[in-house]
Computed example of a mutant assay.
Amino acid sequence: MSEAVPLETGHGAVDGALARLAELDGVPVEAHAEVFEGVHQVLRDTLGALDAPRPGLS
């Protein structure tokens, strides 16, 4: 039994990462770790970008 994943967050990178998780049904368990690592990296990069200085904002 899998939990529902939100269809859209409004952030393209996050939505893409969540879509990859939704596609795991039917994928061999051996392949899950690679997908999880990729999704984790996307989410880390997205959150890390929130701390990056943005030109024009003080």
Rank of each mutant, 00 (worst) to 15 (best):
M1T: 09
M1Y: 09
M1L: 08
M1F: 10
S2Y: 14
S2P: 15
E3Y: 02
V5R: 13
V5T: 14
P6A: 01
P6Y: 09
P6K: 02
L7K: 07
L7F: 05
E8I: 08
T9I: 13
T9E: 04
T9H: 11
T9N: 04
T9L: 06
T9R: 07
G10Q: 01
G10V: 09
H11L: 14
H11Y: 15
H11V: 11
G12I: 07
A13P: 10
A13M: 02
A13V: 05
V14S: 01
D15G: 12
D15V: 02
D15E: 06
G16Q: 05
G16C: 00
G16I: 01
G16T: 05
A17F: 13
A17R: 08
A17G: 03
L18R: 06
L18M: 06
L18T: 02
L18G: 08
L18K: 02
L18I: 03
A19G: 13
A19P: 00
R20E: 10
L21Y: 02
L21M: 06
L21T: 04
A22H: 03
A22K: 07
A22I: 00
A22N: 12
E23D: 13
E23A: 15
E23W: 04
L24N: 03
L24M: 12
G26F: 14
G26S: 09
G26N: 09
G26P: 06
V27L: 12
V27Y: 00
V27A: 06
V27M: 12
V27P: 01
P28H: 12
P28K: 09
V29R: 10
V29P: 01
V29G: 04
E30R: 14
E30N: 04
A31N: 06
A31T: 01
H32K: 05
H32Q: 05
A33G: 01
A33Q: 12
E34N: 12
E34W: 00
E34Y: 04
E34M: 05
V35Q: 04
V35N: 02
V35Y: 08
V35C: 06
F36E: 15
E37R: 12
E37C: 10
E37S: 15
G38D: 11
V39K: 04
V39A: 03
V39L: 04
H40K: 10
H40Y: 10
H40T: 14
Q41I: 01
Q41G: 05
Q41M: 03
V42L: 08
V42P: 07
V42E: 10
L43R: 02
L43V: 15
L43E: 05
L43T: 08
L43A: 05
R44P: 00
D45S: 07
D45C: 03
T46S: 14
T46Q: 09
T46N: 04
T46L: 14
L47E: 11
L47H: 10
L47Y: 05
G48T: 05
G48L: 06
A49S: 12
A49H: 10
A49R: 15
A49Q: 15
L50D: 08
L50T: 13
D51A: 13
D51S: 13
D51L: 11
A52F: 00
A52N: 06
P53H: 02
P53N: 03
P53E: 14
P53Y: 03
P53V: 07
R54K: 13
R54Y: 05
R54F: 04
R54D: 03
P55C: 00
P55E: 15
P55I: 10
G56W: 15
L57M: 12
L57F: 15
S58L: 15
S58I: 12
S58M: 13
